[in-house]
Design a protein around this nucleic acid. Sequence first.
DNA 1: CAAATAGTACAAATAAGTTGCATATATCGG
DNA 2: CCGATATATGCAACTTATTTGTACTATTTG
Lengths: 150, 150
Amino acid sequence: MNMKKPRLKEILHDYQLRVTPGRCDVLNHFLRSSYALSAKDLENRLPQYDRVTLYRTLHTFLEKGILHLIPHDGGFAYFGLSESIRLQLDNTARASSNTHYPDHIHFTCTTCGRTECLSDYMIPQVTLPQGYQIKDVDLLVKGICQACQV
Amino acid sequence: MNMKKPRLKEILHDYQLRVTPGRCDVLNHFLRSSYALSAKDLENRLPQYDRVTLYRTLHTFLEKGILHLIPHDGGFAYFGLSESIRLQLDNTARASSNTHYPDHIHFTCTTCGRTECLSDYMIPQVTLPQGYQIKDVDLLVKGICQACQV
DNA sequence: CAAATAGTACAAATAAGTTGCATATATCGG
DNA sequence: CCGATATATGCAACTTATTTGTACTATTTG
């Protein structure tokens, strides 16, 4: 995941967003992080920006589909890069921002507290009762991550 | 799911909890509700109790395993009856409070906003990369429930 | 490079959840 | 049934996460 800075501007452009230092810095942190970040995490890492700016940036990125929200029972929100961005980074092929990508697994380590998006491990097929229409599936796994094993 | 009141006391006793009006009322609401409830929901339905009392009751019930926490991306917590309580109600056979029950699917309807525990629909087997140890799995499905279909 | 548009900062409000402490109540033994 | 003890409740106040309003500043586009 070695990222050149110019990519930041490209991505923001692709999503019809103005290129500002704040957005570049926030996006950069997500690109470089192997785990999900909370608003608090960003506040700590980017103290030069106002809390509100960070919150608004996160919302904007959510709306545009750059980030996705990870349900969490800790009382606050975690955010991760959307699958479309990950694909943009892996393949050179550019994916359109409204393509639908399959849901991935969110893994939270009870030791280090970090939440990872396990993109390669897809959610198994889910069966629901007749009459239920599925729009979105989120699989949250809690346990101990590779790095924290004894 | 036709419940006689005496069951409330029985359940609280089984879990080594004092029988108070507040706990009976809270438990009763969970027994009668087909969907998960938030602290706010209880506040609205049981205005005779202090907010703090309701929060503390919820925590006590969580600790004892009467309720379980349902991760939710709305920024606040939802609670549902634990599987062990459901089984106590269905079968006459009494289950011990520390038995482990398999995880079920949580369904949130994007139309009515309600979250149901689909007790009969178990979470399929999950595979993670080598070195990840699984402790707990939660599956959240968003979509349109039976009652809200056109 | 200036006008139009959108982003940011600061202050202040709201909402969810928690803590401390004094009072009230449930339970248990007699 | 009664009183002692442990526990639950209510109230006030606090913390933390997030939102809103508004004035100011920066980015984009021609």
